[in-house]
Simulated assay, not measured.
Amino acid sequence: MNRLMALIAALAAPSLALAAPLPADPLGSPMWEFHAQRLFGSAPVVFDSRVAVHMPEIAENQRVFPVTVDARTLPGVKRIVLFADLNPIPVAVDYAPTAAAAYVSTRIKLDQRTPVRAAVLTADGTWHVGGGWIDAAGGGCSAPPVSRVKGDWADHLGEARAAAWHERATGETRLRMTFRHPMDTGLVENIAAYNIERLTIRDESGKALGEMQVGGSVSEDPAFTVLVAASGPIRFAATDSAGLTFAGIAQP
Rank of each mutant, 00 (worst) to 15 (best):
R50A: 12
R50F: 08
A52I: 13
A52G: 08
V53T: 01
V53H: 07
H54M: 14
H54K: 14
P56S: 07
E60Q: 14
N61V: 11
N61R: 14
Q62I: 08
V64H: 14
F65W: 04
P66I: 07
V67Y: 00
V67E: 06
T68G: 04
T68F: 04
T68Q: 13
T68K: 14
V69H: 02
V69R: 00
V69W: 10
V69Y: 12
V69Q: 10
A71F: 01
T73Q: 15
L74P: 09
L74M: 03
P75S: 03
P75K: 02
P75A: 07
V77C: 01
V77M: 10
V77R: 00
R79P: 08
V81W: 08
V81L: 13
V81S: 00
L82P: 12
L82H: 06
F83M: 04
F83H: 15
A84L: 07
N87M: 08
I89Q: 06
P90K: 07
A92M: 06
A92V: 06
V93K: 02
A99H: 13
A100C: 10
A100K: 05
A102Y: 06
Y103L: 11
V104A: 00
R107I: 09
L110I: 08
L110W: 03
L110N: 03
L110Y: 01
Q112N: 12
R113Q: 12
R113W: 04
R113P: 12
